[in-house]
Design a protein around this nucleic acid. Structure first.
Lengths: 165, 165
DNA sequence: CTAAACTTTCAATAATTTCTGAAAATTTAA
DNA sequence: TTAAATTTTCAGAAATTATTGAAAGTTTAG
């Protein structure tokens, strides 16, 4: 298979994965482009590679920077900003876990805390309390799994998983 | 807090969580309604509760059934189908893991297998191979984590996590 | 059978999300 | 400073995704 074709497939597949996990497809594709590039790229490179507008490129690069999975790089004698991706997949997984935990799990936990104070003794209220309690406990568990994943390094994690690296 | 208000908040929050994980908001809300109901509900109950059309309700119920997180229930002497949710959050988490692994991780793994055969010795090709290899290894790891989660029961998992139940 | 009860489908429409491109803001070299 | 280079913003447009509702399909009681 030719490189360009293979790259295209990878970028598409990565974008698809992102999209089905609630991440903007273009954002995931930009990250794929940066992952595949041996050297940092500027906004124009990315615009050209993915055939997208400056606004779109800028917005999504910004988002990737805020997730901490893409970094800025400055090239001496060039005013443009260049970007490169975190290439350690383990580090990437940790950062994505951290971000999603913050953005999605925590809001649910907050709501669960609020609604715990529901009044009454009817069957519906009992059912409600039960569901809220078990959802809360599951969310806490998920948080601790993510915390653990984020704290351990790859080696220790896989040793702990009982698999060879 | 009053039950109706609390339920409303829970349904909204659950829908939000679903939406940010790439699950149709209404689908998640229907599941929340069923989670909170002490008894099975029919399509009309759900339509009324969420103020949605019959088509929409039917489509999303169908999807929930296909994920295996909602079951059908028949009430003697009634021709309508009734639905109830899997209420064990651990079971729910396992089923969602299984479904997402199948729907999203597997396609990526397939693509990675395809593009592995890229030809050449340039730096870009080397970089490409490296990225594909580490993405593949991460995907396999993620799959084994999910497999493990799906195989273990809640007790064993949390013991293994070093936390009390 | 027949018809009522119920479920499913799907084309049209609505809602939401993403993208564009040009203008505004910012940065920096000189 | 000044002005060229670059980045950011954002209103409108385009694309995508979700929803409706009515018609078609299915099932079952009688």
């Amino acid at each position: 298979m030719k490189l360009s074709e293979a790259q295209q497939k990878f970028i598409q597949g990565w974008g698809q994965l992102g999209a089905s996990w609630g991440i903007n497809r273009t954002m995931a594709q930009i990250q794929a482009v940066l992952l595949l590039s041996p050297k940092p790229l500027c906004t124009d490179d990315i615009m050209e590679r993915l055939q997208i507008s400056r606004g779109n490129a800028n917005m999504n690069i910004r988002e990737l920077l805020s997730w901490g999975v893409v970094y800025k790089s400055f090239i001496p004698g060039d005013r443009k900003e260049y970007y490169y991706s975190e290439k350690d997949m383990w580090e990437l997984a940790k950062k994505v876990s951290r971000e999603r935990k913050k953005r999605e799990l925590e809001p649910l936990v907050r709501i669960l805390g609020e609604v715990k104070s529901v009044e009454g003794t009817s069957e519906e209220v009992k059912e409600f309390r039960k569901v809220v309690k078990s959802a809360g406990s599951m969310a806490k568990r998920a948080e601790s799994v993510l915390d653990l994943v984020m704290k351990l390094d790859e080696n220790i994690f896989f040793k702990w998983m009982g698999k060879k690296k």
